[in-house]
């Protein structure tokens, strides 16, 4: 999937995460995480972010994560929303059936 423009999803409220994603053509992945629980969960957050990017086939993107204590499923949902917004596409629900 190709990102077409920058996109944002999520909020800075407690238990949420704000994901900002930019196209990064020819420059690979650049993931930066800011989190109130980075010391404890930074690796787990990174793993989720990379997993969602891979599920969309995205290998080139600037991703900024501003985490306010979001659980894994919130990070996953906000990442999916940001990618769909940046790629101007709807989420592929049928892909979840595989």
């Amino acid at each position: 999937m190709q990102l077409k423009h920058p996109a944002v999803a999520g909020t800075l409220e407690s238990s949420d995460v704000q994901v900002t994603i930019h196209p990064n053509n020819g420059m690979g992945l650049d993931i930066r995480i800011e989190s109130i629980v980075k010391a404890q969960f930074g690796d787990a957050i990174l793993e989720t972010v990379e997993e969602v990017l891979a599920s969309f086939g995205i290998a080139e993107a600037l991703v900024r994560i501003n985490d306010k204590g979001a659980l894994d499923w919130v990070i996953r949902a906000r990442m999916q929303a940001a990618i769909c917004r940046g790629a101007d596409c709807s989420f592929d629900w049928k892909g979840e059936d595989a």
Binding site: A9, L71, R76, A81, F91
Partner: peptide
Amino acid sequence: KDTARLIVYNALRYQ
């Protein structure tokens, strides 16, 4: 609406 769908879907799938 787009993010709410994903939030609810993931909430129920994982928690």
